[in-house]
Computed example of a mutant assay.
Amino acid sequence: MTELIAPAARLHSSWLAARDEWPPGAHQDGAGLRLVADDDLNSPEGFASWVERLRRQSDRSLPVGEGRVHATHWWIVDGETYLGAIDLRHYLNAFLLEGGGHIGYSIRPSARRRGLATWALGAVLVKAPALGLDRVLLTCDEGNVGSARTIESNGGVLEDVRGTEIGIKRRYWIALDDAGHSHSSMAATKTSRQA
């Protein structure tokens, strides 16, 4: 059964297998790899240290590094198999407002085209109001059709397409009700129920 879980050191071997599916140095949105520091993710100890750092990033009583924001990380798993990652940034700094957004996600290459990103995004949107968010910003690369569809299917409304320091980004806003459902998807649901 596919579910979202907090990052877990016990999934080390599955995470390594997923990492090896990506090209060397590829960016994995929402994975928190910028928090690696000097940890050797190949070693169980280094991996466990990084996992703990991911888990602590959501604790607002703890400081975050310069240029970082508090964020909650989840892994998308099926049993003991790591399928991807998604994070919810609690607030935006200038960099995230320009090109990063509130939510980042990535699916391991062998698990794509199964609707996992769409499902995970919907599951995380429900959690956003607990952080005081009534709308969230999501971005994707201009040519990333799959990610644009994922965002749009969860109620994303395109604000603009702009050049940023990390490339040309499509910027979407999703307005949420108190339960974390997007206003656009609620309207679509009401319309389809009436039909």
Rank of each mutant, 00 (worst) to 15 (best):
A8I: 03
A9T: 11
L11P: 04
H12R: 13
H12V: 11
S13T: 15
L16G: 00
L16P: 00
R19L: 15
R19F: 11
R19G: 12
D20Q: 15
P23V: 09
P24H: 11
A31L: 14
D38W: 00
D39L: 07
D40V: 10
L41D: 08
L41G: 09
N42F: 14
S43R: 10
A48L: 04
A48P: 01
S49W: 05
V51E: 07
E52N: 11
L54P: 14
L54C: 11
D59S: 08
L62Q: 15
V64H: 01
G65F: 10
G65T: 12
E66H: 14
E66F: 08
G67Y: 05
R68A: 15
W74P: 07
W75D: 00
T81C: 08
Y82A: 02
R89Y: 10
H90Q: 14
L92N: 01
L92A: 04
L92W: 02
N93Y: 04
N93G: 10
F95H: 14
G99Y: 03
G99R: 01
S106L: 06
R108F: 15
P109G: 10
S110P: 02
S110W: 01
R112D: 08
L121S: 06
G122K: 06
V124K: 08
K127A: 14
G132I: 09
D134N: 15
V136P: 00
T139R: 04
V145G: 11
S147C: 13
E152Y: 10
N154H: 00
G155K: 11
G156W: 01
E159G: 10
D160C: 11
V161T: 07
R162L: 08
R162C: 05
G163A: 14
I168L: 13
K169C: 04
Y172Q: 06
L176Q: 07
A179R: 10
G180T: 03
G180A: 06
H181A: 12
S182N: 03
K190D: 15
